[in-house]
Design a binder for these strands. Sequence first.
DNA 1: CTGGCGATGTATCGCATTGATACATCGAGG
DNA 2: CCTCGATGTATCAATGCGATACATCGCCAG
Lengths: 188, 188
Amino acid sequence: MLQFAILGLLHDAPMHGYELRKRLNSQLGMFRAFSYGSLYPTLRRMREAGWISEDAPDPAADPKPLASRRGKIAYKLTAEGKERFQTLLAEVHPDAYEDEGFGVHFAFFAQTDASVRLRILEGRRRHVEERREGLRAALSRTRERLDNYTLELQRHGLDSVDREVRWLNELIAHERAGTPPSVTHPEQ
Amino acid sequence: MLQFAILGLLHDAPMHGYELRKRLNSQLGMFRAFSYGSLYPTLRRMREAGWISEDAPDPAADPKPLASRRGKIAYKLTAEGKERFQTLLAEVHPDAYEDEGFGVHFAFFAQTDASVRLRILEGRRRHVEERREGLRAALSRTRERLDNYTLELQRHGLDSVDREVRWLNELIAHERAGTPPSVTHPEQ
DNA sequence: CTGGCGATGTATCGCATTGATACATCGAGG
DNA sequence: CCTCGATGTATCAATGCGATACATCGCCAG
């Protein structure tokens, strides 16, 4: 998940951890927030796996006698890392239906095959529809037994799930027709 | 957060852990999912804090020689637990603006003072509006630089944030007018 | 020109949470 | 009778979070 997002961001250009975190939370963080506490351990694991390399500046001449000597580190993809990203892009893992995973995978849709896009969108729709049915059932089952606020909360939740289904339907229709999405409403 | 939710659910009636988890994910889990791995440790901490008691059936006659002997445990609130719930209901902690915290607190709005309801709704609105401005800025800043899919994702995110603001506006208006919410649209 | 302040940057620690799994009982139905 | 799904308690490794520490740099107000 985090690894997939990092691979995708570094695919464009090498980056420092700081920049990486900013983009994670602005571009991909619609559904998810990431902190340094998970970023740096993940970068270390990815380096150990050989996906990325750390481009540290020369640790040569160092007039500072202090023990804490830190330089800026530019992380970039290795050949294996690019390969790994392509593999992840192509596979339709169940994670791609979950809230977090879907957002990340969707953000890289422009680099994916049309068939993969369609399968992920349809899987996501099935996933969301299942949740919708669960909410609907809960709402009609517990109606009259719950107070207005709880009902309103459930109704709002059902509403937003409903909207996502419609959004997915539009995207799927575009995908089947072969036309790109989001040409319609230009600005709100 | 989890503790608050458990206190609220046990306030109605004693419950087993299994039932507790089901309700956490159906009634309160609109924004959040809970697993046993957090439920049981939390229940243990709450018992140690004196807020709940575990009503275990007699561990007396036990013909099974096996080491693993487990009985059903009914968790229920103590007097301190009820007191603790009232305290949490009345305080407007910053957590009440976050996604997870807001959903839980909102679910117990029927048991809260009108002034607390209003302050939480307004704090939530401010919080969501800030996120909306961030998304708007990101969208207009990166337009033209991103592909259609990423733009569509950001637009969808902005859209749902926008809808929540409108929802909160309605609720706040009802709150100020003294009328209960959700009387309007009866069914979708 | 200097002192502070905010952005950039790397890194770690304790704790909570997840997701998977194990184990156990019980009622319904083929 | 026997399996299957719901009910039920519980733990474990891996992962993530939130806070924090530390360091450099540019800018600009006093």
